[in-house]
């Protein structure tokens, strides 16, 4: 069984298997809306491979990171609400 690590999604601690994507961690935290479009519509991941930019969140203070391409690491701070 894979190792578990802890990340924080909008301040809430979450234990996830090491190696999963940030997008997966956000979904596991029960969050469906990853960002708001320029017109304010809710959006979530579409392409899963880094081209659509619909899954951008703030990771460790860095804005606009594509969460489907980023891998969770121990202690990572993931902010969806701010995205």
């Amino acid at each position: 069984m894979s190792r578990q690590i802890e990340v924080r999604v909008d301040g809430r601690a979450l234990r996830v298997p090491a190696g999963i994507s940030v997008a997966a961690a956000i979904a596991r935290a029960g969050v469906a809306v990853f960002q708001r479009s320029v017109g304010g519509e809710p959006r979530g991941p579409l392409c899963g491979m880094g081209i659509c930019f619909e899954c951008r969140v703030v990771i460790d203070g860095r804005r606009d990171v594509r969460s489907c391409m980023a891998v969770c690491s121990e202690g990572m701070e993931i902010e969806v609400a701010r995205a």
């Binding site: 996830v16 298997p17 190696g19 999963i20 994507s21 997008a23 997966a24 961690a25 979904a27 596991r28 991941p45 579409l46 392409c47 899963g48 491979m49 489907c68």
Partner: peptide, 10 residues
């Protein structure tokens, strides 16, 4: 897209 997400732990 869903396949890729699921493979990454979705």
């Amino acid at each position: 897209g869903l396949q890729a997400l699921v493979k990454s732990g979705w």
